[in-house]
Design a protein around this nucleic acid. Structure first.
Lengths: 189, 189
DNA sequence: GCGCTTTTGTTAGAGGCTAACAAGTTGTTA
DNA sequence: TAACAACTTGTTAGCCTCTAACAAAAGCGC
């Protein structure tokens, strides 16, 4: 509710566009829905859609969770094992997520699993998340290469769990599956 | 050298197109080179390029290593730890790779690191490789979820090592970096 | 040589995305 | 309140990736 009228209107338009986009994508499929369709449904022009979301994929995948995740990881005790600092934070964040957040995540996963273009962008976002995690853990105590390897592996395990969660209908608590995946990673290696 | 004249010519055209594509991409950048440019350099029409390579990204990323990798993993002793069956196979394959193969891999990595679209597709290919590895290891002895987690984590570690290799100029033997990443994965968890 | 298949070129077009300009709206200052 | 600046939007034109449909050319088996 903060900001001037201009900013509030902008945020509102943005939200409106994304909601119509997600609805249309889920109803008719991502590839069968054009940006022009989304624009028309949201009552704006195609250009306006692209001004708010640089690419069509961003209509589905944009989120602002990375900074939050980075802060939480940074706040963990520095003497704990890396895999725990990363893994536990992810599990806890998932456990605390609201129902609306989980539904959004499930919708994204469903779309991502159904359309290769989205899946690729999803994985690329994960790559960027890896970088964010590495930066959050960089304190001179650990080699950067080590940080990258651990962060990448953890994220891979988490993603595998989330995909499994989505494939089995999104029932149950995803953070339990994620915790299970991280356990496997630890005991296996 | 086998096959009809038709098949040989087809393979030749395909190779010609890809070589010109890689050359132009490395010279002028991926985004600054259109498929029409590649077609003209190779002496064919744009349509022909798309018939040989479904997307522009495939000009860079297409390879046929997955089946080979799957066969090699399948041939490893079934009583070894999963992480070893996967990791050692990857390290050995890299160690045996020809200089030409390594150069091609380095060129791909360079382009992939420079252009987001390629990086996304690269990561998506990795996801497919994960599936291939899981299938190769499926023998009823292991839970499929476990296989996915381990395969995904190993590939993440390997990719991290290859990126590091490319970022540091492609000097030295990549398989040593990969082995190092896998060691980190094991000792860390 | 003669059908048959495969490969190629051409054309037309859809759809994602960008640049440039004009028009309308909001914020600010006199 | 009037005027000027900053921002957002729509419109238009166009580039580029990629697909479909049809016709022409080249290799294949008889």
């Amino acid at each position: 509710m903060e900001g001037n009228l201009r900013e509030r209107r902008k945020a509102l338009v943005r939200q409106e566009i994304r909601e119509h986009a997600m609805r249309l994508f889920l109803e008719h499929g991502y590839d069968n829905t054009t940006v022009a369709d989304v624009a028309e449904a949201a009552g704006v022009s195609s250009m306006t859609v692209f001004r708010h979301f640089p690419t069509k994929e961003d209509l589905v995948l944009t989120d602002e969770f990375d900074p939050v995740l980075a802060a939480r990881i940074k706040a963990t005790p520095a003497d704990r094992p890396l895999i725990r600092r990363i893994g536990d934070t992810l599990v806890e964040s998932l456990a605390q997520a609201s129902l609306a957040d989980l539904e959004m995540m499930l919708a994204r996963l469903r779309l991502g699993l159904a359309t290769p273009a989205l899946r690729a962008r999803w994985l690329d976002n994960e790559y960027l998340t890896q970088t964010v995690i590495v930066e959050a853990l960089s304190d001179g105590r650990h080699d950067e290469f080590r940080l990258r390897v651990v962060a990448g592996s953890c994220l891979a395990a988490v993603t595998t769990a989330l995909i499994r969660w989505a494939e089995s209908g999104g029932q149950g608590a995803p953070h339990e599956l994620v915790a299970q995946a991280l356990d496997i990673l630890q005991e296996e290696s």
